[in-house]
Write a protein that binds this DNA or RNA. Structure first.
Lengths: 192, 192, 192, 192
DNA sequence: GATGAATGAGAGTTCATTCAT
DNA sequence: GATGAATGAACTCTCATTCAT
């Protein structure tokens, strides 16, 4: 359960990382962003690492759940994947700051605690994606000549790079509409 | 042209980033690593940013050149791509620290100078990859039903994620041999 | 509005400049002088330049106001000037450290911000002095055969050099009483 | 006796002080200015203080001598003073950098050795000026109602402030021609 | 005469964090 | 809940100077 202030801090932290990189996430900047003094931040989080952990939890809530929800929908595997990509593009279009954090494992490299967490989220997502693909392969909906594992690397890798590129271009391209075309191509590749 | 000491510093810097993340790259650590005092570092580089720029140049030398060399070889497009992937896996197996830096745009997000540089390298590589694919499509060696642009996102994205995963797993998997299988799958996907 | 600590810091800074010159004004010395650690200083001033600016403001408060007050007193021009000189000698006798800073434009030469400020203070004071002289000339109280501008250079220049000399002699001469004689001579010179 | 290189270093040092203030006078800047490396400077001067001492000697050569020469010319006291002022304005117009150093005792405040030197030069000059004035008073060429001492404060102080102002205005005013008018006013003031 | 490489000391500044209020 | 004041540790970088070559 998070208090209002905690949510405010996390949001501010994500924005800071987005705009100034991880080096811009200082308690001072954070306090300034939410209009309090530095010690006030420590009323709501024990220390800086707890804030990063909370960010990672937002990530899990916002991103990983996209995967999990997809997993159990009663639609074809390809539809699941398509929907999953669209959801991502949609999420990041709405909240570009999140994208800066989500695919930036380096940010958390320092703290083993955080690295563990991000790795488990990531491999969890990969597993779900692989399961969806395997399901599609079983249904002869997705090509069988390539291991599901490899296809999931491919899908996830493409997604990540595409979004990273959109970031580097400072969101000048329309992620949603351009993304639709990319998804279309990926779908074609997955066909048997 | 680099002096011996400059090379030493760059190497040490890459190792520091690799092991402790960008936050571990301090002048103090750097000086310690090469066994001198901090001011001595400034004999060899004007400031920290110049060190990061030099790292980026190693990256360009080590990675971008793989692309450029490939571009003009007299072999089929698929062979070029295969070779290019193998080269990467080989490079990073030899010098795992480099991988930590190469695919970590976030590290350089702070300094516009560096961000520019990394972006130009990245888009340069993407363009070369796209050209190779287009050439393959013209020869009917690579599938034509998907834009070359999208295929290059896919290839590059897969490569990046694969290497990042290898990093997160702390190099426990054999990048070279496992990578070969991945390449095989990707080749299959590219076929018409 | 200044806090108690800010006043304390400014006072310590003036004393440091007085005793060790501008090179002696370091954050470390300053912190030591007020009995705190270096970072504590930054709670009270954003940076060193702000401290120097604050010193300049004390200068303005302490010196420029002498001029402004004089300007509107209902006494003869010569009386104003006499009083103004006496006030200066009195101020500097009480607070010799201030004199070290007040007439040392070189100290602030580095920072354009500071140079601007000191120049505006200085030319403001000169303008007030010139106005007083012009008024005296209009009343035929002060000689008319020399431009007010030149007389103000003369008065101000004499004042400055006299105080500087007193400094260089390490305050061994009695500024107040000796100064009175100087003022008397200057008054005589100003007469028509 | 100074070598060519020593003269070069002193000139560069004066220019550095002029353009960047005393804080800009570093061995690094100095070496750069004359196109050698830092240790090379130490071939020609034992240390930085010796360089400052040498600057002071140039000052004595260039400025104090103006006074001494004047002292024994066979002209009226007023002519001597007029000539002396003109010489100063001329010198500083030709070599503005020198002015930055000459009237900046603060620069040398740190080193007692230097402070001593500058004080002796300064009081020497003042003595000469006072002698000239006394001579003029004896000849009834200069007013007698004010002590020579005070008149010399006045003359010297005006000269200094006038030049300082010319510096602060970054030499935009014509020191020589405007100075002539000032001298004219001062002469008038000195008359009996 | 000059250089390349280095150093000890110290500069200003920022960091996450603590504590009394 | 929040603040003002402070701190130890660390940061990048500059300084005058030395020394072997």
């Amino acid at each position: 359960m998070q208090t209002e202030r905690q949510r405010e801090i996390i949001e501010a932290a994500i924005h800071l990382i987005h705009h100034k990189g991880i080096q811009g996430l200082t308690i001072k900047n954070l306090a300034q962003a939410i209009g309090v003094t530095e010690p006030a931040v420590y009323r709501h989080f024990e220390n800086k690492i707890q804030i990063l952990i909370a960010i990672l939890d937002v990530f899990r809530g916002n991103t990983a759940n996209i995967f999990e929800q997809e997993q159990f929908r009663q639609v074809s595997a390809l539809e699941k994947i398509t929907h999953l990509f669209n959801e991502h593009f949609s999420t990041f279009t709405t909240n570009p700051a999140l994208a800066s954090v989500v695919f930036s494992e380096e940010i958390f490299k320092n703290e083993p605690l955080l690295l563990d967490k991000i790795m488990s989220v990531m491999s969890g997502n990969m597993a779900i994606l692989r399961d969806i693909i395997q399901e599609g392969q079983a249904n002869e909906e997705i090509r069988n000549d390539v291991p599901a594992e490899h296809l999931s690397w491919m899908l996830m890798g493409t997604l990540r790079l595409y979004i990273k590129n959109w970031q580097l271009q400072q969101h000048t391209m329309n992620l949603k509409s351009e993304g639709k075309k990319l998804i279309h191509s990926l779908s074609r590749i997955l066909l048997p």
